[in-house]
Design a protein around this nucleic acid. Structure first.
Lengths: 166, 166
DNA sequence: TATTGTTATACTCTATAACTATA
DNA sequence: TATAGTTATAGAGTATAACAATA
């Protein structure tokens, strides 16, 4: 389909001719706009992540929370949410869901009874271990395949620099 | 603030000590996750775009539509929306807003009365010209300043490759 | 008085079904 | 019957105000 440009209709008489339908649009300067390529690429990357992670039903945001809890056990909700750029009110439902799936627990802090100390459960640790293997073996590996490993690393460095310095 | 780590409270007796509050969390493996850096960077880039474009009140999505209409006059809503990855139903309100601001017009196609042919108005062209100057002079220029011009170009190429091939 | 977790709420984006008018 | 534009609607994601418990 879409092979031969068969045009049975006579269009010779078209006056202020409308453009050749069927032809892909020219994105022009959009191709050089960093924000445009970044948004399109980001959607693809998250979509690929979700497909790879489908067996574990973890979103990128959930995975990032589990990673952070593993590396920083005993922190409170405000600290974790802030680190990830999540607003505290929006972090509540997210934690509810992770706690309902028994990946982590909230515990009243003994030193400050206002705050909840967060920790992974054994189930959370096990799930995170499986998730990491999927991400490394199927997700990041695919990105290295597309870009080349050196470029993938360079790309992450540039993105981190933008996030830090822009 | 946050200069000297003044710790008046005696914490020597803490048994299963909670982590040193006040210390930034360790993002660990998150720093190497492409999707994570890309999301954080993308938010920063769009935020910067919005600040630069504040005098014209144009979002990245609106700017991309105007660019596409300029380069591809006479296309219909489905074609433009598809090219930008916008769903047709969601494109309606967006066009309503751009048309209300007199940046573009919908015209019934003479060859297919179902479709609307889209074109920039003179006001739309003039606004787009101003927008392009802001983007080139203040937005992309800032990104080149942060990354270096060669790296900025290389970055766009890698992002485009991901959008195409992942 | 200030902070933690929380609720309520609102606004934007995104996604799907279904209608209408044309083809 | 199929397609273009549209409406309605629902779900994420994100943002702010305010309250109870605690500091």
């Amino acid at each position: 389909m879409r092979g031969a440009p068969s045009k049975p209709k006579a269009e010779l008489m078209a006056v202020a001719a409308e453009p050749a339908a069927d032809t892909p649009l020219d994105i022009g300067e959009l191709a050089d706009l960093l924000g445009y390529s970044m948004k399109r690429a980001q959607l693809k990357v998250f979509d690929h992540f979700l497909r790879v992670m489908a067996p574990l039903h973890l979103t990128p945001a959930q995975f990032s929370v589990l990673l952070l809890l593993e590396r920083n056990p005993g922190r409170n909700q405000t600290e974790v949410a802030n680190t990830l750029g999540i607003l505290r009110p929006n972090f509540v439902a997210m934690l509810d869901s992770l706690e309902a799936r028994e990946f982590c627990v909230r515990k009243r802090s003994s030193s400050d009874r206002r705050s909840h100390v967060l920790m992974l459960t054994e189930k959370g640790k096990a799930t995170l271990a499986r998730a990491k293997k999927l991400v490394a073996g199927k997700h990041e590996a695919r990105l290295s395949e597309v870009l080349g490993e050196d470029n993938r690393v360079a790309l992450v460095q540039m993105l981190a620099k933008i996030a830090r310095e822009l």
